[in-house]
Simulated scan of single mutants.
Amino acid sequence: MSIPSILLNFLFPPPSSLFVTTMSVVGLASLTNAGYMEIKGKHMQYSKFLNVGNTKKENNIKLSSRNGMLLVYTPAFLVGLGSLLVFPNKDLRFVLVTSALATHFFKRVLEVLFLHKYSGSMPLESAILIPLSYSFSTATMIYAQYLSKDFPKPSIDLKYYGIGLFVVGIIGNFYHHFILANLRKKGDKEYKIPRGGLFDLVICPHYLCEILEYIGISCISQTLYAFVFTLGTTLYLTGRSYATQKWYISKFGNRFPKDVKAIVPYVF
């Protein structure tokens, strides 16, 4: 049995769409490169990596971190929400994928508004590029799902496993964001080593849980684009986690636990 025939047990046939194909290639390449750049020390400019590893631009327009992060997540949420209203003849899988994407970004919007504490700013460039990436990838995943509605369904149905993975991932992501948000009291701008939950094993369990969310969405979707995007996201977040581990080690030295990995417990 050939590899393509094996994959068709798990995936819808890829649509003959130049847009989806192009977005698959460009998305995977750009996310992989972004992850590699994180490892090399050229970071996406937000959070603790603001002005770290890149040449500081004195005239760069900046937003408050809160407004910047709100701008990052809101457009993708609106894409997901709008798709539930715009696309006709929606089947269960389409509704589940679109709802999961909208829920993922709506949760992030709520966290920005009511959970996270901020002490810095975000360059306008990052506040434009990141939401464009999120919005285009969300729209493409939804569009690829819509195109697959008339295709033969995969013989192995993963969507209910995907729902379970997504729920575990989004709860775990929120839980670890909650821990991070409560590390600092109001007015406290000093970083601390996070403890509790999976922070005792890895420094970025929130990224690990986000990857789990996207694996869940991919299993609900069972389109090639969804899995390709999840692979790219995994590579980027792995690079970002590695950079975060290095940052904590450089800041805290011997106080940072040696057995705490970057993103995969006991492994990496």
Rank of each mutant, 00 (worst) to 15 (best):
residue 1 M to H: 13
residue 3 I to R: 12
residue 3 I to A: 14
residue 4 P to D: 12
residue 5 S to I: 11
residue 5 S to N: 14
residue 6 I to T: 15
residue 9 N to R: 15
residue 10 F to N: 13
residue 12 F to I: 08
residue 14 P to A: 15
residue 15 P to K: 15
residue 15 P to N: 14
residue 16 S to A: 14
residue 17 S to C: 10
residue 24 S to Q: 13
residue 26 V to R: 12
residue 28 L to C: 14
residue 29 A to E: 07
residue 31 L to R: 11
residue 32 T to S: 15
residue 33 N to K: 14
residue 34 A to L: 13
residue 35 G to M: 12
residue 36 Y to S: 07
residue 38 E to G: 06
residue 39 I to W: 10
residue 43 H to Y: 14
residue 43 H to A: 07
residue 44 M to D: 02
residue 50 L to K: 12
residue 50 L to G: 02
residue 50 L to P: 00
residue 51 N to M: 01
residue 51 N to A: 10
residue 52 V to S: 08
residue 52 V to C: 04
residue 55 T to W: 01
residue 58 E to S: 03
residue 60 N to H: 05
residue 60 N to D: 12
residue 63 L to S: 03
residue 63 L to E: 06
residue 63 L to I: 05
residue 63 L to T: 01
residue 64 S to K: 12
residue 64 S to L: 08
residue 67 N to Y: 06
residue 70 L to F: 13
residue 71 L to N: 11
residue 74 T to H: 01
residue 76 A to L: 02
residue 79 V to R: 05
residue 80 G to C: 03
residue 81 L to R: 02
residue 85 L to P: 01
residue 85 L to E: 04
residue 87 F to R: 07
residue 88 P to G: 01
residue 92 L to F: 05
residue 93 R to P: 05
residue 94 F to M: 05
residue 96 L to R: 03
residue 96 L to D: 02
residue 100 A to L: 03
residue 101 L to A: 00
residue 104 H to Q: 09
residue 105 F to L: 06
residue 106 F to K: 00
residue 106 F to A: 09
residue 106 F to I: 05
residue 107 K to E: 09
residue 108 R to T: 05
residue 109 V to Q: 00
residue 110 L to N: 02
residue 111 E to A: 06
residue 117 K to S: 09
residue 118 Y to R: 08
residue 119 S to P: 04
residue 121 S to D: 15
residue 121 S to W: 09
residue 123 P to E: 08
residue 124 L to N: 07
residue 126 S to W: 07
residue 129 L to T: 15
residue 132 L to M: 15
residue 132 L to N: 04
residue 135 S to M: 05
residue 137 S to I: 11
residue 139 A to C: 05
residue 142 I to G: 09
residue 143 Y to P: 03
residue 144 A to D: 13
residue 147 L to V: 04
residue 147 L to P: 07
residue 147 L to C: 09
residue 148 S to T: 06
residue 150 D to C: 11
residue 151 F to S: 15
residue 152 P to R: 11
residue 154 P to Q: 11
residue 155 S to G: 14
residue 160 Y to C: 00
residue 164 G to F: 11
residue 166 F to Y: 10
residue 167 V to K: 02
residue 167 V to W: 07
residue 168 V to H: 03
residue 168 V to A: 11
residue 174 F to A: 12
residue 174 F to Q: 13
residue 176 H to N: 14
residue 177 H to M: 06
residue 178 F to K: 15
residue 181 A to L: 06
residue 183 L to N: 09
residue 186 K to S: 15
residue 187 G to L: 10
residue 188 D to T: 07
residue 191 Y to M: 04
residue 191 Y to C: 00
residue 193 I to T: 08
residue 194 P to N: 12
residue 195 R to N: 13
residue 197 G to M: 08
residue 199 F to W: 09
residue 199 F to H: 13
residue 199 F to R: 09
residue 199 F to T: 14
residue 205 P to K: 04
residue 206 H to L: 06
residue 209 C to W: 13
residue 209 C to N: 11
residue 211 I to L: 00
residue 211 I to H: 02
residue 211 I to R: 00
residue 212 L to Q: 03
residue 220 I to W: 00
residue 227 F to A: 08
residue 230 T to D: 00
residue 231 L to C: 13
residue 236 Y to K: 01
residue 238 T to Y: 06
residue 248 Y to K: 03
residue 251 K to V: 08
residue 255 R to W: 08
residue 255 R to I: 10
residue 256 F to Y: 15
residue 256 F to Q: 06
residue 256 F to M: 05
residue 259 D to I: 12
residue 265 P to K: 06
residue 266 Y to S: 10
residue 266 Y to V: 08
